[in-house]
Amino acid sequence: MKRFSWLIPTIYILFLMLPIYWLITMSFKTTNEILGSFTLFPQKFTLANYKTIFTDPTWYWGYFNSIIYVSLNTVISLAAALPAAYAFSRYRFLGDKHLFFWLLTNRMAPAAVFALPIFQLYSSVSLFDTHIAVALAHTLFNIPLSVWILEGFMSGVPRQLDDTAYVDGYSFPAFFTRIFIPTIASGIGVAAFFCFMFSWVELLLAKTLTAVYAKPIAAIMTRTASTSGYELGLLAAAGTLTIIPGAIVIYFVRHHIARGFALGRV
């Protein structure tokens, strides 16, 4: 029994890789080959699909747009969440528990509920179709998530650290930036990873808030699929390219990823 236990994760990983494999192979095929015959490997290996993406500005700007608003969102979310998480982990104050719970409800709220009113809200302050609009809208779920994750990590740091620093004559800002932030660096890394991740994978709000100038790559894919019929190879190539940033960042946080999903509470 024990000897064969490696089989289970292996089969599971194979199952995970199959659709990804199919996407990647398809991205190297010509449209004729995709529609005309069923082949496990590309018979006529082509890079034409990737070439289209890298030479057509509407395609590659999609990637820049996504990366711009995802980065903006990560910076805004963390900057706002750090002091708040500190307050929650170190002090009691009027309404703290309710506030903490209210934050959580926003992490859980369905984006479909907010899509239309958020569109109207950002249009009325003339931020529609800007990167900052998507970045701000995504703080709806990324700030609560960051606060929860950071609070979990900060509560693991004993209060004595704070007290010792004050005795040593540190002011609060000096203590916070020079001692506290380095201490919880891994927590900040995990929170940043999750902000990146959820902003990167979310599409409903990003699509609703953009038209031309800030359109995310994922939305451009959907448009291509519907307007120009079945350019499956191109679709597959664009999809493959969206997997790469995720694969890179996972590698850096692989040991902490579970703690992040547990909202900092493993």
């Binding site: 995970l16 991740m197 994978v201 997997i243 995720g246 694969a247």
Partner: peptide
């Protein structure tokens, strides 16, 4: 290896 490969689907945009 297991952790990275298993986490991969979580990082793919939902429409992809």
């Amino acid at each position: 290896v297991c952790l990275v490969l298993m986490a991969l689907p979580l990082l793919i945009p939902w429409n992809v």
